Simulated assay, not measured.
Amino acid sequence: MKKLNWGILGTGWIASEMGEALQAVNGEIYAVCSKSVANAQKYANQFGVKKVYATAEEMFQDPQIDIVYIATPHHIHYPYLRQALMAGKHVFCEKSITVNSQQLEECVTIAKEKNLVICDGTTLLHMPLYQKLREMIGQGIIGEIKMIQVNFGSLKEADSNNRFFSKELAGGALLDIGVYATSFARFFMKSKPNVVLTTVDYYETGVDETSGIILKNPEGQMAVMALTLRAKQPKRGVIVGEKGFIEISDYPRAQKAMITYTQTGTTETIEVGQAARALEYEVQDMQDYVQNQGGQENLQMVRDVMEILTAIRNQWGMVYPFE
């Protein structure tokens, strides 16, 4: 795989993890930009980055950059995503890729017009385990899938100034951790759900703190999701079929799944990939998409997920101030 020039926007903890992955897969990082030039320079020193930019606009205009990686808070993903695409750059953006489906669809239109790749950082969509499980399910090992159960709970400190609880910064459980749960559910469903039922409890700032969500697609497959920012839950997903079920713990970066065959009670453990290499798989996929004009299946999955998340918020009537 040939080296590509990546420009990093944002220098927080996830950008540091991505820096390590880029060095491992791509061998180098071309450029970095942060609202703090000092932070950008520190990042450049740490990862041997060639160029440091003071503004995103300036970095986007660099003709040497192939891919822009957006690692900013997600309330400003959309404007940067749009600007990068308009500048002719492929974009890998952290989740949630945008805050609503209208924003994403606008960017998809631009990308199609300019023959550019959009991809997002929902890690499980890039983990080798999931491709293996989908293949095995297609072979009928657990029969027809009937239900998916998926939980995600974080115990965030009750701080109204924290971005997780800030409505102005698109906080709340849905866009922070619900992206993973929804992606898990959609990945194993035959088609996009056309029925959404949900209830929510709000934090004092007006963002969603806890929610229950039921999805159903035209084939009758159902997914049940439980999300919260104020109570730790196991990151556990279960795919239930007529002949067995598959359990996956720590599912965003999972490398192992256990299959239980209900007719016999026997179990089988499947291990594929390495959790520690999760972001390397993201880099590999993105570079493959760019060099081989791929990624359409991944993008459609991301679009479906964003439509579901938008439908959920529409039912709640929860709107961010900047929308």
Rank of each mutant, 00 (worst) to 15 (best):
M318I: 14
P193T: 08
D120M: 05
N161G: 10
E168G: 00
Q46M: 13
G172T: 09
L279H: 15
T260I: 11
I141N: 09
C107R: 04
C33K: 02
T228E: 00
P79E: 13
K114P: 13
E157I: 11
V224M: 06
D62I: 13
Q293I: 03
S160A: 07
Q23R: 11
R236H: 09
L129N: 08
V319C: 09
G317A: 13
I270P: 03
A223V: 04
R313Q: 14
D159H: 12
P218Y: 10
K256P: 11
L125D: 03
Q83F: 05
P128T: 02
Y251N: 01
A15R: 04
M1R: 07
K42L: 14
T98V: 10
F188W: 13
K192P: 00
G317K: 10
C107A: 14
W316S: 12
D304N: 15
R82K: 12
Y281T: 14
M258T: 15
K2I: 06
L279A: 03
E144M: 02
C93A: 14
H74P: 06
S36T: 10
A278D: 09
G237I: 07
E105D: 08
T98G: 05
L104H: 09
N5C: 05
A15M: 09
A276V: 09
H75Q: 06
I65P: 06
C119E: 06
N314L: 14
N45T: 13
Q41M: 12
